[in-house]
Design a protein around this nucleic acid. Structure first.
Lengths: 275, 275
DNA sequence: CAAAATACGTAATATACGATACAGCGCACC
DNA sequence: GGTGCGCTGTATCGTATATTACGTATTTTG
């Protein structure tokens, strides 16, 4: 059963030629607004010609463009009248593989943040935004990208941010640069990596403050960590999910940026002009 | 301060003549839909003539009817893109900086998946799980970690998965290895990177199938992409959020793994024993 | 590798839409 | 009760828009 035009499109998008597929993608991307504009605007946004747009709506089963627009408007009307129905697609074939994964992730996010106090985050933000010390980030086999992601952002709003990558020997040597005023952000979820644990322990002995992103079973590094963020990772998949940790990371990035706004804005402008 | 057109109307409705007032009331009653239809339909619904409608929009300060419609559409766009703003009431439960970010992300996830059909994902999964071709992954300045994350997982369940990193020249040279049976997964959100666009174009010309992860405004690469995943990125932060794309990536990883279960499980066991 | 079929864009055409001029009507004020 | 002003609708015009026909490019198939 196909009720919305969006479903109709995703149902047939596979059978469409390239141009019409681009039209479909453009419409879905900012659904349904572009479809309410004129054919010319729609075609320009999709980067195709007007006739392609018209062939696209014809393929969806509409006699002409106005009829297509009316259908979109009717759909919009129904949505606006009952905002609740917006939240969940009423007649979506959610038996598929999509929904369970999404639902589990949403739950994980809510749970993770429920156990996270504003104060705890504020403390971490204060530490990360403290420009007197350096910030190092490192991750495990699957979480290293999270460390990279966070480093890429933090490095823009403040100096002295370093992502530790490559061979173990390489970043072990960086320990020499770390001291009491520095922060080490570690991502470590199951299965916990010995090399990371050893690294964390040594850093801890040198007085480095450790911020640990881990799962709900807590990496052994928690022992040495000043701050521990425990994210939920369970999803219906062969793999654990790092989404909750990712979102916490983004939240911290945003908060640190706001904290450093005055200086940070200047840095960002400078960097922009360098490009 | 008047922000929405609805406010503007209720502000001036007192000073309007009878006919225009009927127009105003009709519009408010089923806001803003009737305003997106034609002047003729609007006038019929309000029970007045077309010129009255035009005088009505002129009184609101618009130069012409299309301009009025554009304003309505922009307003609608803002609403649809960040449903959070609707929920945003002054007496929010958590006053801290945590909640807005989480709420926005949850909305982004729901919105992103709402525009994703099982079928579309299934197509991508089938392509990624097709062992006859190679899989390349690459990302932009901030999204490269997402490419890494996905590559790290996919590389375990199947051979011939390559993350393209480092200098532009390095991965440009890898184009020589890419052909019709191969898949190129690209992550590209604003601000879109020219180097990536050029790379995608060349790969496309070589017949490589492109799977694009982008934001709702669609990277120019969408032009060359076989499959486009448009994630919502708006959050109350100085940065855009990649969380939605991250979760889609995790979903795909899980699905591909399940698809390759038979072979994949064997590979995973082998790899485990290698450690 | 050749040939046919399909898809796409350019340009011309028809249509429908918004805009405007003008006349009739009602209402208030004198 | 008459006169003037303002509001509204009818009819017409010009224009922007959707539509269609056709030639070219691209892909698919034998």
């Amino acid at each position: 059963m196909i009720s919305s035009i969006a479903e109709l499109i995703s149902d047939r998008i596979g059978t469409m030629p390239a141009g019409e597929r681009r039209a479909a993608q453009t419409l879905i991307a900012s659904y349904p607004l572009i479809g309410l504009k004129t054919v010319a605007e729609f075609s320009a946004a999709a980067g195709v010609s007007s006739p392609t747009i018209l062939r696209f709506v014809a393929r969806l089963g509409f006699q002409n463009y106005p009829e297509f627009q009316s259908a979109l408007q009717d759909e919009l009307a129904a949505q606006l009248q009952s905002p609740a129905s917006r939240t969940l697609n009423p007649s979506s074939p959610n038996g598929g593989a999509v929904s369970p994964m999404l639902e589990a992730t949403l739950d994980n996010l809510r749970e993770t943040f429920r156990h996270l106090s504003d104060k705890q985050l504020a403390d971490i933000v204060a530490k990360l935004a403290d420009r007197r010390g350096k910030t190092f980030l490192i991750g495990g086999r699957f979480t290293d990208p999270l460390a990279r992601y966070m480093a890429a952002h933090l490095a823009i709003v403040q100096p002295n941010v370093f992502h530790l990558a490559g061979q173990e020997g390489v970043w072990r040597d960086r320990l020499i640069d770390m001291g009491k005023r520095d922060v080490l952000v570690i991502f470590d979820i199951r299965r916990y990596q010995d090399s990371l644990v050893r690294f964390a322990e040594t850093a801890h002995q040198r007085g480095v403050q450790i911020v640990l992103f881990t799962d709900q079973w807590l990496s052994p590094i928690a022992r040495f960590a000043r701050h521990v963020i425990a994210g939920r990772t369970a999803v219906p998949s062969a793999w654990d999910s790092s989404a909750a940790l990712f979102v916490v990371a983004e939240t911290l990035i945003g908060a640190v940026t706001r904290q450093l706004e005055a200086d940070g804005a200047k840095r960002i402008r400078e960097l922009e002009s360098l490009r």
